[in-house]
């Protein structure tokens, strides 16, 4: 792997993912339990993972602050995932690569990390790899760590601010109970959280430019992935079952003449259920 010597120019790779719309009504969300697959909701188009435009935004700000550089967007997915790349290009990214191959069907997050790492190695020089903090479909958030591990570079997760300082970046991380500031040398992987701020809307001019840009398509062979690394059989994390959990609710109206009596009756019920 060639690593770029840090300079004023910055070379950033952003990984984006197309997912089923998280706003899909619960009634429209269905899975094929036998095939262990999510059935795409009819009439509801897939969307860019909501955290990913923030990663793109971070990349564009760092590139623009440097004054020169390149932002390359990669996505692994079906043909329609080209839309996720095009959205990033319309925001202002420079180039796009779609990893698309029938053998990517059914792979898990770890196989995805392998594929992304190999694609990034094929691209070559980079200073920084940015991703959303997690994808809102499986919500595991492991791909940034996986890619960092495979490429042998530091990983900083859940960033709310990224500042480049020569050959290093200072990252403000979001913790459960506060914030943490860390610094890491480049190259590195940083996952970006929604606290980073609103991503920009594509400008008309950028949309017209993005529409003209060609997205390169690489298959498994193009990135040197072996057959036994691919497909559902190559999963690191075997999927035993996939189902929509049954949600049951029982409503009991608490009776009482006065609000105080209702509250007393409620407290007694909760105590009987050993909830208080």
């Amino acid at each position: 792997m060639r690593r770029r010597r840090p300079s004023e120019s910055v070379n950033i790779i952003v990984c984006v993912k197309q997912i089923p719309d998280p706003e899909t009504p619960a009634a429209s969300f269905k899975v094929d339990e036998a095939a262990k697959k999510v059935i795409p909701a009819q009439g509801i188009a897939p969307v860019v993972n909501p955290f990913d435009p923030q990663a793109t935004e971070a990349a564009l700000r760092l590139r623009d602050a440097a004054g020169e550089g390149k932002v390359t967007v990669i996505s692994l997915g079906p043909d329609s995932a080209r839309d996720a790349i095009k959205h990033a290009l319309a925001m202002g990214a420079d180039e796009g690569v779609l990893l698309n191959d029938p053998s990517f069907e059914g792979i898990d997050n770890f196989q995805t990390a392998v594929a992304l790492a190999k694609a990034i190695q094929k691209i070559g020089a980079f200073d920084l790899i940015l991703m959303g903090r997690s994808a809102a479909d499986w919500d595991m958030g492991v791909v940034p760590a996986g890619v960092g591990q495979l490429l042998g570079v530091p990983v900083v997760t859940v960033a709310k601010a990224i500042e480049r300082n020569g050959g290093a970046v200072k990252v403000d991380r979001v913790l459960d109970d506060g914030f943490q500031t860390v610094e890491t040398p480049l190259p590195a992987v940083v996952s970006v959280s929604n606290e980073f701020g609103e991503p920009r809307y594509p400008q008309l001019r950028q949309i017209m430019l993005a529409a003209k840009k060609t997205v390169q398509v690489w298959g498994a062979a193009d990135i040197g992935m072996a057959a036994d690394e691919l497909g559902a059989s190559g999963r690191w994390l075997p999927l035993d079952a996939l189902y929509v959990p049954k949600v049951e609710s029982n409503v009991e109206i608490i009776e009482g003449e006065t609000p105080e009596e209702k509250a007393r009756n409620l407290a007694q019920k909760l105590r009987a259920a050993k909830l208080i």
Partner: peptide, 15 residues
């Protein structure tokens, strides 16, 4: 409608 139209539509809708 072409790709630029679709991207433009999505941008306006988001806005």
């Amino acid at each position: 409608f072409n790709e630029a139209h679709h991207m433009f539509r999505k941008t306006v809708r988001d806005f």
